[in-house]
Simulated scan of single mutants.
Amino acid sequence: MAIFRSEREGRLRLKIGPDAEEALRILNKKALKGNNEATEQIGLALEDAYKRLLQPSLETEARNEANKQADEEAIDVFGENLRQLMWAPPLGQKNVLAIDPGYRTICKLVCLNAQGDFLTNDTIYPFYSGDKKQEALNKFYSLLHQYQIQAIAIGNGREAERWVKSMKWAGYLSIFSVYESGASVYSASEAAREEFPSLDLTVRGAISIGRRLMAPLAELVKIDPKSIGVGQYHYEVNQKRLKERLDQVVMHCVNRVGVHVNMAGKHLLTYGSGLGPQLAQNIVVYKSQNGAFNSRSALKKVPKLGAKAFEQAAGFLRIPESKHPLDNSGVHPESYGVVEQMAKDLNCNIHDLLE
């Protein structure tokens, strides 16, 4: 890919194909059978056909094959990069203060509760001198105490990270640097406008940074995978294949980890096996109208979530609040009886088996 890119930019010339002399020798050996007055003309015709027709065709074919192979290898790398980002360990349910370092001197602050709900936001200028710097410290301390902050998420900004870690209380809080690629894309997306219609782009971006720390998978599924920063020059590969691969990775990650159905939003649920945008929306609406699900079987009450969709999705949807421990496991409801019998045969309870 790098070679092809350099050629397009005029930095080098690339020639792919067999050695011309060797190729002509092979052709002559196969085609020239005698030594008569026609032999020389046939040889000239072979040379002309090779240089004018066959050689360019071979080069085009070799280029296409090399480009296809490079595409596939790059797409595999991009897919693995995305997988690693989505499988980053979540911080979990803690009160978080997120910092989005802006251009040079400005920092956007956002406070989130343990469920990731937006509480408040502010703007500080920690790298100004005098009153602005002291004001930044005062606002920071105030937010920490008022919202009982337990962890701090800092976007890409070394100065902001150094500023936070230089404070005397830094050792008492968990401070994390968060990979924020794609946060600006999310902040301008329809999903962000739907969640936070009254907030500006910079505040939405800071919220995304904080939530990425708390639950990377749940937050990253809201962003077009190509915008997350899966690798350089991803725009040069086959875009259809790239989209297919990245979508497969997202779906695999979601279904491998499972979804806490009472905490998940529409975008995360959409990737659940057997669901989709409409059923995901129906689940969210049902939760808002009827409260949290208390069992997997309660999902059957969701409009349009039929037996087939339930069969496909149930094993990936987790309900920790359920009285039945298997509702918070990867065991499908149709296999509950098998697990219960195993527990009975081993003279233990289901909790012991799951542990």
Rank of each mutant, 00 (worst) to 15 (best):
L268V: 06
K51Y: 08
E21L: 10
L354F: 04
E9N: 12
S129P: 11
F118A: 08
I42N: 03
N36S: 08
A31K: 04
N28K: 14
S288F: 15
M86P: 05
L109D: 07
N67L: 14
E340Q: 09
L201P: 02
N347H: 14
R5A: 06
N81R: 06
L246R: 07
P303H: 07
I16P: 00
V331Q: 08
L14R: 06
A98N: 04
V339R: 00
A49L: 12
P216R: 01
K165S: 09
G315R: 07
L54E: 00
R52H: 05
N28H: 12
D19Q: 09
H145P: 00
N282Q: 10
M214R: 09
Y141K: 14
L85E: 08
Y141R: 09
P56C: 03
S174Y: 06
M214S: 05
E7N: 03
Y125P: 02
V203M: 05
W87F: 14
Q341F: 02
L143R: 13
L82C: 03
F4M: 05
P126G: 13
G79S: 11
D247G: 10
S187N: 02
L346M: 12
Y336W: 13
L199W: 07
Q150V: 02
K94T: 06
L269W: 06
A62C: 03
L346W: 10
N35I: 02
G205V: 06
A160R: 05
Y233G: 13
K226I: 12
K344F: 05
T120N: 14
R211P: 05
I319N: 04
V339D: 01
E195G: 02
V249M: 05
M1H: 12
D131V: 15
N156R: 15
K29V: 05
G79M: 07
P101A: 09
K51S: 10
N113Y: 02
N156V: 03
G229E: 08
C348W: 00
T270I: 01
K139M: 10
G231L: 08
G102H: 03
M342S: 09
P56T: 00
Q278N: 11
L119P: 04
E59Q: 00
I124C: 10
V259R: 10
R212W: 03
N290S: 09
L109E: 11
L143E: 03
A206R: 12
F310S: 01
K33S: 09
G205T: 10
P56N: 00
H324F: 12
K168D: 13
R256W: 10
P216K: 11
G92R: 07
D224A: 09
Y336M: 03
R256T: 15
Y233D: 15
G171P: 05
V96T: 02
G258M: 08
K133G: 09
K222C: 01
K266S: 12
L14E: 07
